[in-house]
Nucleic acid binder design. Structure first.
Lengths: 331, 331
DNA sequence: AGCTAGTTTGAAACCGGTTTCAAAGAACGA
DNA sequence: TCGTTCTTTGAAACCGGTTTCAAACTAGCT
């Protein structure tokens, strides 16, 4: 409530001096400093962040544009971003897009007009590119690339290798007929994962079986029924992400199919949920927290980084748990 | 980038006129309006939100202070808040506290200095009260009350009735030895739930069995082992929330105990996860989205509301799914 | 003492919209 | 035609910190 001018008046100095005491931007006479500090504590003065950010052109804010706040993958990433941001006095603004392009655009301009210091964007639309280009605020693209070429700061995981790891693991486990539940192929991560699967199929001279599915739990329920119809003798399933893996598991159990005895199942992402369930899900884990932290750091330390079209790729890791098992091995 | 003064110069009018055209706050000559609109579109002018909020003393921001962004209960609530906020052009700022009192305080002052229009707070500390009182920004307390008396705007669920419903349901199902996994009793919701359980015990002349546990998955794992040791003949468990119920289920399965055949299990909250798992969890569901929406609306329409010490209580509902079953009934 | 160099300090401009207030212009009646 | 009232418009103040710039003061040297 109190303003810097009131504090200044009370301390018998100018607003400039109060500002200097608060920020340590210049030397202030000891006796005056004491009076200022006293006045600040007497009035309970808290500097107005809006006024400061108007002048500084920085609101110490990071914008996070993601498809959904309830999706565990994004909340885990968000949590890591929030942690890194909070440590440096930055705040997070959440923008839920539901993958709606118009909302993505609106969030971009809105965050820019709020003097955000940077934006972390997970998009599903190539068309967003021109808007990202116009944006004066640095944009870090995470998880999903929206361009084949590397003109932007990308932080993501090597999904292609992930796809290979998943397939190789199921083959290792002795599966003969492995179905890949492909995610939406316009999303780069889904496509790369499938590419990895397909390349292993080719290399190992194994027949490829696929089914299309959204990155969505409910969609997974429907597609699994269809999968079982289409491939009744399937013995291994690669889900496009962990949430879909959960829905697949649910339908398998509903059909009294034992996992991993009859069908083995592997997910993608390594969200914390994959570890909580019974049974625990075998999955290709991304270092979600590291991705989030890296993205936040790129913005927070943008002065040190040149912010020039870089790509940061993390390695996925196979995490073997309870939904896969080498055939012939006992408990 | 362009400022309102540049737009004004280009259109040959004053900044005031540009402002009036944008906001429709006063009549502007048709021909001038056209010139202004043209200049806006030529320059791609987007008004700076910070400058506006400095004058308006409103940043069209809602602060959300919660213990964790990854906890599904809070993300579901947050999602509903975000939706209601977005519809009215408000943005959400997330503050993760990890139940740390200092972080709660810091978030409160920070949000106030950002000219936030309101704050939605889920706290675990009574001590926060004096800070909430000092806050000029309206604070809505959700989920957990921090005072017995009702001096604040509270939006929450009738946890006491929830506790009763859970216990009555397990009795209905024929359970004889029902253990209540009590949540942290300094948190009002946990206490109310336990009170409900206890009162039903008294009324029905049933022996009360309890075990203490945090609202936390990992804690649940440990406490369940202890529970099985302490009450080997338990046949019904009331978990303090759904996440703890998941962990209880995990340990029960690890001990080869069938649910619901040997032990019946009921959770609390009705997070969407409770429905995704296999088996689906019987739970006492809160109307999480309604709670979030109500809290957001109280802030967005604060002018219409008198904002004077009101309490909004929602009713919980028993959702019977697969972890409970009336004894003696077949599939 | 007189002069220069260095330090502390406050007045005022600034950030970029918004709003007030009074002036200028339009419309209308006498 | 003149006066009155109503409308449109822009100059300037405002929101509340921050920073510049020059004045005032201190210290050090001749």
């Amino acid at each position: 409530m109190a303003s810097i001018r009131e504090v200044a008046k009370l301390a018998g100095v100018s607003p400039a001096t109060v500002s200097r005491v608060m920020n340590g931007t210049a030397k202030v006479d000891d006796e005056k400093r004491e009076r200022v500090l006293q006045a600040i504590s007497d009035t309970g003065f808290v500097p107005n962040a809006v006024a400061r950010s108007l002048f500084k052109k920085s609101a110490r804010i990071i914008g996070l544009i993601i498809p959904s706040i309830t999706n565990p993958f994004f909340t885990q990433m968000a949590s890591a971003i929030e942690k890194a941001a909070d440590e440096q006095g930055y705040r997070l603004i959440f923008c839920n897009t539901g993958t709606d392009l118009e909302k993505e655009k609106a969030s971009l301009t809105m965050l820019e007009s709020m003097n955000a210091d940077g934006i972390i964007l997970t998009t599903s639309h190539e068309e967003i590119e021109s808007y990202v280009n116009q944006c004066k605020v640095p944009v870090i693209v995470t998880d999903r690339l929206f361009k084949e070429n590397k003109d932007y700061n990308h932080v993501h995981c090597d999904h292609y290798t992930g796809g290979r790891l998943a397939m190789e693991h199921l083959l290792d486990c002795g599966c003969k007929k492995i179905v890949c539940v492909k995610g939406p192929q316009q999303i780069s991560s889904a496509k790369a994962r499938y590419d990895g699967y397909r390349d292993v199929c080719e290399e190992k001279q194994v027949q490829e079986y696929t089914i299309d599915c959204d990155y969505d739990f409910n969609e997974g329920l429907v597609m699994t029924e269809q999968l079982l119809n289409q491939y009744p003798d399937v013995d291994g399933i690669i889900a496009c992400n962990d949430m879909v893996a959960l829905s697949i598991y649910k339908i398998l159990r509903k059909n009294n199919i034992e996992v991993p005895e009859q069908i083995q199942l592997i997910g993608f992402d390594g969200i914390y949920l994959s570890n909580l369930l019974t049974p625990e899900l075998t999955t290709i884990a991304q270092p979600i927290e590291e991705i989030g932290r890296k993205a936040a750091e790129l913005i927070i330390h943008k002065e040190e980084n040149d912010m020039g079209e870089k790509e940061y790729i993390f390695k996925p890791a196979l995490v073997v748990r309870q939904t896969t098992k080498k055939k012939g091995e006992g408990e």
